[in-house]
C-alpha cells in the first residue's frame, strides 16, 4: 500500500469526516504499520464511524463484528453448516466411500463464514470493525490475540488459514471494562474525545450545510455547554448534535431561541433525569444567552 499522510487527510476530507491532525496521524500509523487501531472514548464521538469512513476512503467492504456478552468463536469466526452436512450424509448413505464423504463434508463448501473468517479470506483488503470489544468476554478477547497478531486462524478440520490480505482492523471500546494488556499491546491506541466548539462547527458545516452560520455556531456552543455539566449522564453525541441541527433547520430557525430549545431538547437529551438536570442547572434561557454570546446578530 502506498499511502501518504496527505492522501489520508484528503480521504477524510472527501468523506466529510472532520478530525484533528493527531487522529489522522494515528490512523495513518496503524495503516502503514498494518496494526489494528484501538479507539476508546465516550459514546457518540465517532469511533464506529471511523470504521465506516475507512471503508469509504479505501472503497472496500466493511465487515462488522458487534461484540456482546457471550459472543464466541462460533458466532465470530466460523461454523459448519450442519444441515447441509446432514443432508449430504443422508443422500450418500448407501453409495459413497466413507473417506471421500468425510473429506467432502469438512470442505470449505460446508463452512459458514462468520465476520472474522470472512475478513481474513476476503480476496481484497477489507475493513474489519470489531465494535464495542469491551462488551465481549475475556476468553473472546484472548482468542482475538492470534488473529490480531498473526492475521491467521486455526480451523481444526482445515488447518491454519492465513489472511490473503491483512485487513484494516478497527476496534472500538467504551471503556466499560479494562481491556487486557495483551490486546492493547497489539494495537495502536487512539483516544477520541468530544470535539471542541470550533471542530464541531466544522462538522455541522460539513454535514448540515443548510444551517446558517449563526445557528451553526450557536448550536456548537450550546452542545459544548451541555456536555460540560458533570451531572448530565448521557452527553449529547455528535450524531445527536447533527439531528438537532437538522430539526432546527427544518423548523426554519436561523438562531437559537428558548422556546425552540425547550421543544427540541429531547433530540439532545434522551432521558428524564438528564432533562431534569438541564432544567434545574442550565435552563433554556441561559443556554440561549450563553451560546449567543460573542456571535453577531
Amino acid at each position: 500500500m502506498h499511502l501518504t499522510l496527505k492522501d489520508l487527510r484528503k480521504g477524510f476530507e472527501n468523506v466529510g469526516y472532520i478530525c484533528d491532525e493527531e487522529t489522522i496521524l494515528t490512523v495513518y500509523l496503524s495503516l502503514v504499520l498494518e496494526k489494528p487501531i484501538l479507539i476508546e472514548g465516550p459514546p457518540g464521538v465517532g469511533k464506529t464511524e471511523m470504521g465506516k469512513v475507512l471503508s469509504q476512503i479505501f472503497d472496500t467492504e466493511l465487515i462488522r463484528l458487534q461484540c456482546y456478552e457471550g459472543l464466541d468463536e462460533n458466532k465470530a469466526l466460523y461454523e459448519w453448516n450442519y444441515q447441509k452436512q446432514l443432508l449430504k450424509i443422508q443422500i450418500n448413505r448407501d453409495n459413497a466411500e466413507t473417506n471421500e464423504l468425510e473429506n467432502d463434508l469438512f470442505s470449505p463448501e460446508y463452512l459458514l463464514e462468520r465476520p472474522l473468517l470472512k475478513a481474513i479470506q476476503s480476496p481484497r483488503k477489507v475493513v474489519l470493525l470489531v465494535d464495542e470489544i469491551d462488551k465481549s468476554d475475556d476468553e473472546f478477547e484472548a482468542f482475538l490475540f492470534e488473529l490480531l497478531s498473526d492475521f491467521q486462524v486455526s480451523v481444526p478440520e482445515l488447518g491454519t488459514i492465513r489472511a490473503n490480505h491483512i485487513p484494516i482492523v478497527v476496534l472500538t471500546s467504551n471503556s466499560e471494562r479494562e481491556l487486557s494488556d495483551g490486546l492493547k499491546r497489539r494495537c495502536i491506541f487512539l483516544y477520541l474525545d468530544f470535539p471542541g466548539i470550533e471542530r464541531e462547527v466544522e462538522i455541522i458545516r460539513a454535514k448540515v450545510p443548510q444551517a446558517g452560520e449563526n445557528l451553526t455556531k450557536e448550536i456548537a456552543k450550546a452542545v459544548n455547554l451541555i456536555r460540560q455539566n458533570a451531572e448530565i449522564r448521557k452527553k449529547p453525541s455528535i450524531a445527536e448534535t447533527l439531528d438537532w441541527t437538522r430539526a432546527l433547520v427544518s423548523l426554519n430557525k436561523d438562531r437559537l431561541q428558548s422556546s425552540t430549545i425547550e421543544l427540541t431538547l429531547n433530540l439532545l437529551l434522551k432521558n428524564r433525569a438528564d432533562q431534569r438536570v438541564f432544567h434545574e442547572q442550565i435552563g433554556a434561557k441561559a443556554l440561549r444567552e450563553n451560546s449567543r454570546a460573542g456571535i453577531s446578530r
Binding site: 495513518y28 500509523l29 504499520l33 484501538l38 471503556s175 491506541f189
Partner: peptide, 25 residues
C-alpha cells in the same frame, strides 16, 4: 512508527509516541 514521520515536527513526534506507547487514556 518514527521512521514514518518527519522528525522535525514535534507534534507528530509526540503523537506517534503517544499512539504507540500509551494504551490507557
Amino acid at each position: 512508527a518514527l521512521q514514518l514521520i518527519p522528525l522535525t515536527n514535534k507534534e507528530y513526534f509526540k503523537a506517534t509516541l503517544k499512539a504507540t506507547l500509551i494504551k490507557k487514556a
